[in-house]
Design a protein around this nucleic acid. Sequence first.
DNA 1: CTTAAGCGATAGACAATACCTATTATAAAT
DNA 2: ATTTATAATAGGTATTGTCTATCGCTTAAG
Lengths: 306, 306
Amino acid sequence: MNLKDLKYIITVAETRHFGKAAARCFVSQPTLSGQIKKLEQQLGITLFERTNRSVEVTAIGEQIIQLARQAIDQTEAIEQLALAHQDPLAGPLRIGAIPTLSPYLMPLILMPLRRRHPQLKLVLSEEMTDTLLARLHNHEIDAALLATPVDEDGLESVTLFNEPFWLAHPRQHWFYNRETISRDDLDNTDMLLLSEGHCLAKQAMDICHLSERQQQGDMADLRASSLETLLQLVGAGFGSTLVPALALRGSWTTDSGVIARKLELDDAYRQVSIVFRQTFPRQKALQAFAQVIMDNLPNTVQAVKN
Amino acid sequence: MNLKDLKYIITVAETRHFGKAAARCFVSQPTLSGQIKKLEQQLGITLFERTNRSVEVTAIGEQIIQLARQAIDQTEAIEQLALAHQDPLAGPLRIGAIPTLSPYLMPLILMPLRRRHPQLKLVLSEEMTDTLLARLHNHEIDAALLATPVDEDGLESVTLFNEPFWLAHPRQHWFYNRETISRDDLDNTDMLLLSEGHCLAKQAMDICHLSERQQQGDMADLRASSLETLLQLVGAGFGSTLVPALALRGSWTTDSGVIARKLELDDAYRQVSIVFRQTFPRQKALQAFAQVIMDNLPNTVQAVKN
DNA sequence: CTTAAGCGATAGACAATACCTATTATAAAT
DNA sequence: ATTTATAATAGGTATTGTCTATCGCTTAAG
């Protein structure tokens, strides 16, 4: 059986005329006759009762043609669906981002994205780097926004921007009187960190020259599960911390006893990149998404030219 | 697009493995790969995201494969339906019969038919010869049981049996004392007839040598619309009539003042035949139906050997 | 009564394409 | 480093869908 054959019998049933049906199917009449004969033999039944003068559909033919119509409808639905999704921007894009980035970046780009690519729908998830990479491999998400370099098999990574770390310290802290903060200053203060698994925790440790062991001994009980909590702790005077620039766009500096200051250190930034499977077929959609991000960054962070 | 292609992508979606899918489809792996590539190009979308190590279905692929499954289901339903009807006896057979035959013949054969061919369902209709022939041409019925020879284009006719005409007369009639009834006797009595259109009316007139005109003058007001009515009239003494043998199988002789007697005339019978379109594809079913009729006739009528 | 026109079926040649074998390229496992 | 497993590619073969030309038949017209 064949989809063309089904179209043929449907058309014959409609026209009750082999010649006209053939013309409507853009084939010759012998072709149509032959294909229908073949189909009838394959099915073992007669679909049309024909004389030189008339063509009538048999009872069983009526039933079969009804089913054939449904089958053709399904295939046309397939073509419609495919056509609607030929635009790689169309349809949902499943994006995961790390928790120290997502709540600060997404508000910046969602509106511009909708304006620029209204047909592109996002499905967002917020998880830590390892989980995101696993979900990427499992095809559960299409891309991940990470702040750590990735070099895994089958994954590709495009850097979007460099996000500086700022120092957040309590107002009462002796930092308050310093003109600039040096790395030595950072080494000699109480640094609060995010709980384990957050890449930001490890990066902060690297910059402040803290070792894992040191950390465990000192303030394991003061690791926070979110940046918001962390800043609350800073405001309460428990210590200082490094904060990615985008996270400071809120009202932290003004009210709640937290002072945020730029760091004049070469390596006090993180590289935010979008990571996806090399085989992902809708990379154009990711490209568009990335472009919207880079076009809508505040001037505290600098987009990377690729 | 092609039904085979749809089967291919369904199988790949199930196995997530081109080689295994190819084996299950009984084709080589390159064939499967090529066909799927072709389909993806035709649809303009990627159905599977594949590496050397894994095959995963894309989001749009999932949707399309779901539709493909439905389409394949429809075609399998077509094959099932065709298979179920490959037995030409299967499915309903639309039979029309004339009113002077149907109510007397059908009770004789319905039970034997069900015993012999339980899968053969009858759809009966009861109309006069002309109507039946028209419906036959219109494909509204598949065969007609008639008592008149038919020689129309595209129709074929098989004689089933010869049904003798019996004479039905009132008990008080002078026929009652006669040993045998001759044709002259018939000419000289009041013959009651069925209303126009019934072939039995014309046949009775032929046998009794009545002309149309004669009939109109005499007893146009006494034509009956059914055999039952006609016999009621006979019982009431309004005249005599010719009755086909099968119609006398009831209890007419015993009670209601009607005497039925065989006629010893060469031409006092009618030929009952089954008529159908030459192109009708289920002639085997008609053959079976006809055989059941001939096997279950009472000994008052004689089957015709073909 | 002959001729012409319309219709579906048939025959044979051709061309598109589905299919196969053999091979390549690449990644994972030993 | 070698082997194994996988999908992709290349090139040749075979199937089969399609075409043109024609037949056989029926109906309509001259």
